[in-house]
Amino acid sequence: MIHTAKHDSDITVIRPGVDRLTAVNAKAFKDEVTALINDGASQLIVDFQDVTFLDSSGLGALVGVLKKIGHRGDLAVAGLTTDVAQMFKICRMDRVFTTYANVDAALQKMAENQ
């Protein structure tokens, strides 16, 4: 379900490919991103621009992926829409994930940090 694009400096941008990341597809999302990590991807940006809704299972999957990367790399999120941003705020996920306004901003910052 996910779409990925590899950029310079080994950063992978992931678009979930659904407008709602929920209990219905959270496991598939996690499995596919985990496969990317197992294949060596370590600098990841999840692009939420087209995701209008994230439920508790979706958030659980995202945190699961973050734990999977651990100290080996970085997982940032970009382009949070209103309801998703609200979900992040109420769960304090803005303190767990580095968030960027959009993918371009994330790419620039992450490349600088390397």
């Binding site: 508790s56 958030l59 659980g60 945190v63 705020k89 109420i90 769960c91 304090r92 767990v96």
Partner: peptide, 13 residues
């Protein structure tokens, strides 16, 4: 309230 970490997600929360 304005939020807080969920429970059972982050050990050091």
């Amino acid at each position: 309230g304005d939020g807080g970490f969920p429970v059972g997600m982050i050990p050091s929360a």
